[in-house]
């Protein structure tokens, strides 16, 4: 699985080095959005219609990100790379490491679960800022676990799966007392349990389900964005409850090379542990 990831990385490198026009200051500040926890351009928990990077229709861009989520009983770290081509296509790769608490570690004999996610997204139409209608993109995330011990123990049917989503995102200039408002709505077809970390499908439900995800944010200045997100989740495993995810975030964009986002996340019940709340921290570096 790791080799597959590396192959993707080198493919991305070859593809991007073949093009000479690179995003320097293409889009407006903060309009590249953030790095989503599964590697796609987006908000923090929700993939958006925005592509990860400041490229315009004549440029390419690449970014790397690192995200840590530290909730009551679990920790999740996610690292990855995303590249966007001509403000049209985005390719991404992320590796998540899910750290289990010692109690579960002893019971299951598993300390951490790794998940690889390959993502692709195509902007169908619209411009985030300038079109009268929203920017609309379609995307997929192919996910695979490095081992299925925990997933199958909990009743999941598979250790890999693919999410499909359609996202609409729009910035309204000066809408709220002169401040720019950004909103996003995503419809996602998924079989993933807890984003895939607990496998795909289950004894309770083994079909694709449509879930809705949404975000809303306010640009307080060109550099500061505050907002909140909501991510609906399926409930496929009969023995372990799964809750919807929510967060409130603040994002700092000092320039077009860097982004830092902090959020308070409420993940509800995750793998039998109730009230999983905590801090989400994410950094994105835009390489070009």
């Amino acid at each position: 699985m790791r080799i597959k990831g590396l192959k993707t990385l080198s493919l991305l490198c070859v593809m991007t080095s073949a093009t000479s026009v690179m995003a320097d200051a293409g889009k407006l500040l903060a309009t590249a959005g953030l790095s989503q926890i599964e590697g796609s351009g987006g908000g923090g928990l929700v993939p958006w219609a925005t592509l990860a990077g400041y490229d315009t229709r004549d440029e390419t861009s690449a970014s790397v990100f690192m995200t840590n989520v530290d909730v009551t009983d679990y920790r999740l770290s996610s690292i990855g790379i995303a590249s966007s081509f001509y403000d049209r296509v985005e390719l991404s790769y992320a590796q998540q490491t899910f750290h289990l608490p010692v109690s579960l570690n002893k019971a299951l004999g598993v300390g951490e679960i790794k998940q690889n996610i390959l993502g692709a997204k195509v902007r169908l139409f619209g411009d985030l800022v300038y079109s009268d209608y929203p920017q609309v993109s379609i995307g997929l995330q192919h996910k695979s676990l490095d081992q299925n011990t925990v997933a199958s123990y909990l009743g999941a049917k598979k250790d890999s799966g693919t999410d499909l989503y359609l996202a609409a995102t729009k910035v309204h200039l000066g809408l709220v007392a002169g401040y720019d408002l950004i909103w996003n709505l995503t419809a996602c077809a998924t079989k993933a349990n807890e984003m895939g970390l607990l496998g795909f499908g289950g004894d309770g439900n083994n079909h694709y389900q449509m879930v809705m995800e949404g975000s809303v944010g306010l640009l307080l200045s060109p550099k500061w964005v505050v907002g909140m997100e909501y991510r609906q989740k399926p409930n496929n495993l009969s023995r372990v409850e799964e809750d919807d995810w929510k967060d409130v975030f603040v994002s700092y964009n000092p320039n077009k090379n860097f982004n830092l986002t902090a959020a308070y996340v409420d993940l509800g019940t995750v793998a039998t542990q109730k009230d999983q709340t905590g801090l989400y921290l994410s950094m994105t570096g835009y390489l070009w």
């Binding site: 200039l173 307080l220 060109p222």
Partner: peptide, 9 residues
């Protein structure tokens, strides 16, 4: 900043 946004709009 709000005035700038309104002009851009």
């Amino acid at each position: 900043y709000p005035q700038q946004n309104r002009v851009l709009e």
